[in-house]
Amino acid sequence: MTPFRYERAQDAGSAVATLAGAPSGAFLGGGTNLVDLMKLGVATPDLLVDVARLPYDRIEVLADGGVRIGAAVRNSELAADRTIRTRYPVLAQALLSGASGQLRNLATTGGNLLQRTRCVYFQDTSKPCNKRMPGSGCPAREGYHRSLAILGASDACIATHPSDMAVALAALDAVVRVQGPQGERAIALTDFHRLPGTEPQRDTVLAHGELITAVDLPPLAFGARSAYRKVRDRASYAFALVSVAAALDLADDVVRDVRLALGGVAHKPWRALRAEEVLRGAPATEESFRRAAEAELAQAKPLAQNAFKVPLARNTIVRTLLDLAERAR
């Protein structure tokens, strides 16, 4: 651990300006991931700009029927929000399946998105890791990778993104609103996180100094018929081996529309567009759901220890869609 300065931001503008002038600084939200990584020596910021108290702590319904979630809204508050629970239950369920009550009380919406990907070698500074030390190598591929990625990985990195919330947001076509030194911009959630490629050190497309101010949820007419299913090694307080965020719209037992995203399988929340394509217009049967899951997972490149994730993801997709279809009937 290295010494660092701590500053509490007064407003977004000064926070962005401060960090823009501090190339080794970082924003601090709830600190539930960053501070852990600092204690491990994995993150070594010399300045923390605390943005958790900025006035982005509201959940507002927008004119178009969508919802704007402030970046500083705590995970526990977001999960308990009535609008979220009724219009986007997938998001509330995803939040409640993550971490623990204590962590959710601290973790912020913006910070949740910015969790670093997980891998035991990334978290151990005595070991090589292309994410932590670009070019040093990836021991996970030949080593311990039971919980790591089956989709979209690269030779450089097979880490997985740990967020449950982000998987639901990926399914919901959320948009991340960002304020940076060059002004504001909006980034689709599905474009926000990166696949590792040859630059696994970059988890997201954010530039240094860019601050998340809000996450927008567009209206989704069938959002109420959505669910999050998380499969893990114990009943609570564990990262997903596989998770499924789904929303399903049926008309006469035919899939009119669907949103599907997977967690625990890739370097980013994995929007299952191929599966969605297979599903639209298909009968709402176990066979269609299975075909869709298989279409998505055809691109999987599992390794020895995580090969089980392919059938696990398939079965979990099918079960989640069957349950939603059952409820729609």
């Binding site: 035991v120 070991k127 039971r146 090694d233 990262f239």
Partner: peptide
């Protein structure tokens, strides 16, 4: 749940914290 995973290449216990070494939680 419980199992400490050995990494034979480095000769060490790769799962050396309570996030990776699972003990039963109340929900189990």
């Amino acid at each position: 749940h419980e199992e400490t995973v050995l990494d034979p290449h480095f000769g060490y216990f790769a799962t050396h914290d309570l996030a990776e070494y699972h003990v039963a939680v109340n929900a189990d």
